[in-house]
Nucleic acid binder design. Structure first.
Lengths: 255, 255
DNA sequence: CTACAGCCTGACGTAACGTCAGACTCAAGC
DNA sequence: GCTTGAGTCTGACGTTACGTCAGGCTGTAG
C-alpha cells in the first residue's frame, strides 16, 4: 500500500549514515520538520531514502542560516528535487568559499602590515571578523527593500520561495559590494578581475532566472522600473557599477 | 599613568568598527572575556586597540568551535601576539576552505550520479552533510587519546594551550583520513595527489612544532614510543599511511 | 531646558539541540 | 523462560551565545 520501499533504518543507524545525532532526529520529528517514513509496532522510528533527501535539504537551508521554523514552511510549500538541492548546495558552498578567500586576502594584507610594523589596518581586520562570524544576516533585504518593492516581486513569489530569493539577495549584495569597490579602485573593465566579476554576475542572474522565462521577465520588469523608484529608496547598485559590468561583458565578447 | 593610548571608542562605535553587536560586547564584558580598557566617569565603556586585538583572537577561537568559557581560560594563560593570531587565523581558514572543497567534490560526484539516474551515493551525501554541519566536534581527542597518552604530552602542555593542540588533532584526523583513503585506493606515492598530501603533512608538523625545538623533541618522543603503545589503544594512523607519506616525501626529493 | 540619541544594568526570551530520567523493546545467551 | 544489555521512546530540564525589552542615567544640539 505504501510507497516507502528500499531499506529502512532505525534512528541510531540513520543518524550514523547521515552524520547527525539521534537527538537531532527527535528534534526535527517533534518540529514536524522531518517525520520518519514509518514506525514499527513498538513505535521505533524508521527512516528511508525520502527522509534522507529531505535531511539533505534541511542541512543546506540550515547552512545558509535559515531557522528551522522557516525551513519547515519552506519545505512544506516547496519541495526541491534532488538535482535542485545539489545545485543550491553548490551555489551556497561556492559563496562560502569566496568569502573565505576574501578573508584570506584580508589576513595577508594584515600580515604584511604587521610585518612592516605599520599601523593596524582596521578595515582588513573588520573584514576578517565579519567573515569569521558569518552569522545569518538576512537583514539585507529587510533593510533595502520596502513593502512597495516587495509587491513588485509578488509575481515571482509564487514560483521561488522568498527565503531562497533573500539568500540570493545576499549573494547579490556581496557581489555588488565587490563591483563597487572595483569601480572606485578604477579597475579596467577588460581586466581579468573585471571579467571574473562579470562572469559571477551573469551566473547569479542565471541561477535565479533558472532558465524560466516567466521569472526572467519578472526581473526585467522590476529593473526596467529602476528609474522610477522613489529617490529616497536606495538603489541596489550604482549606475557606475551597472555600466562597469556592461563594459566588462562587452569586452569579453570582443576579446 | 595608564598605557591605554590611541583613540578610545564607545560601545556602539567600537561595535561598528569590528562588526559585532553592542550586546555581544556587554556579554563578553560580563564573562570577563573582554573587559574594556577604560570607562568614563559615568560608566560608559571605552575600547582601545588592545581590546580590538583581543576581539580578533576571540573571533578566531570561536570560529574553530571553542566555547567562550574555554576561550577565556585560554586567553588568560596564554596571550597570543598579533602575528601569531594572524597565523592561526590563516591556518584555520585554510582548513575550512579545504573542507568546503571536499564538499564541492562530493556534490559534483553526487550530481554526476543523479544525472546518470544512478543510485544515491550515501557516502557522498554523508560527506556533504558532515561538512555542512561543521559543528564543533572536539571529541576526537577525547575519544582517541587516553589519559596515559595525555600524560606524555604534559611536557608540551606548558608551551602550547591544549585547546589549540586539540584543534590540531582534528586537522590531523582530517588529513590522516585522506591519506588512508589514498593508500587503500592504491594512489601512487609519486603522484601529484600524494605530493599534495605529503606537503600538507609536513606543513602541519611545521605549524605545531612552530620552529620550537623543544616541542619538536616532545613530538618525536611521543611518536618514537608508538610501538610501545598498548595494542588496544587505537593508533592515530596506520603503518601503511606512515610509509606512504615517507615514500611520497622521498619521491619529492628525488623528483 | 528639553529632546533625543546613546549608554547602563538587570532580567527574561530564544534556537537548536544536549543531557538525564524512567519506562519499553528485543535479540542473544544461559 | 528469564535475564541482560544495547537500543528506543517520551517528557523535561539544562546550555550556549546571545536577542530583546524595561527602567533609568548621560550628554549635547537646538
Amino acid at each position: 500500500m505504501n510507497k516507502t520501499m528500499g531499506t529502512l533504518h532505525r534512528a541510531r543507524e540513520f543518524a550514523g549514515l547521515t552524520g547527525v545525532t539521534v537527538r537531532t532526529l527527535h528534534h526535527y520529528d517533534r518540529l514536524g520538520l522531518l517525520k520518519p517514513s514509518g514506525r514499527t509496532a513498538a513505535g521505533y522510528r524508521l527512516y528511508g531514502e525520502r527522509d534522507f533527501a529531505r535531511l539533505q535539504q534541511i542541512a543546506t537551508l540550515k547552512f545558509i542560516g535559515l531557522p528551522l521554523k522557516q525551513i519547515k514552511g519552506l519545505l512544506e510549500r516547496n519541495t526541491l528535487d534532488l538535482a535542485a538541492t545539489l545545485r543550491l548546495q553548490r551555489e551556497v558552498i561556492e559563496g562560502q568559499r569566496r568569502r573565505l578567500d576574501m578573508a584570506l586576502r584580508a589576513i595577508e594584507r594584515a600580515e604584511r602590515v604587521v610585518a612592516t610594523g605599520g599601523e593596524p589596518d582596521w578595515e582588513a581586520f573588520k573584514k576578517i571578523i565579519e567573515v569569521i562570524n558569518m552569522q545569518n544576516d538576512m537583514e539585507w533585504t529587510d533593510k533595502y527593500y520596502s513593502e512597495e518593492a516587495k509587491e513588485k516581486l509578488a509575481g515571482m513569489r509564487d514560483r521561488i520561495p522568498p527565503e531562497v530569493i533573500e539568500q540570493g539577495q545576499r549573494d547579490w549584495a556581496e557581489l555588488i559590494g565587490e563591483v563597487e569597490a572595483a569601480v572606485s579602485a578604477g579597475v579596467d573593465p577588460a581586466s581579468e578581475r573585471a571579467q571574473s566579476l562579470a562572469a559571477r554576475w551573469s551566473k547569479l542572474i542565471g541561477a535565479f532566472t533558472g532558465g524560466d522565462p516567466a521569472i526572467s521577465e519578472g526581473l526585467n520588469k522590476l529593473y526596467a522600473d529602476k528609474a522610477n523608484w522613489p529617490s529616497a529608496f536606495p538603489k541596489p547598485y550604482s549606475d557606475e557599477a551597472g555600466a562597469f559590468i556592461c563594459q566588462a561583458a562587452a569586452a569579453h565578447k570582443k576579446g
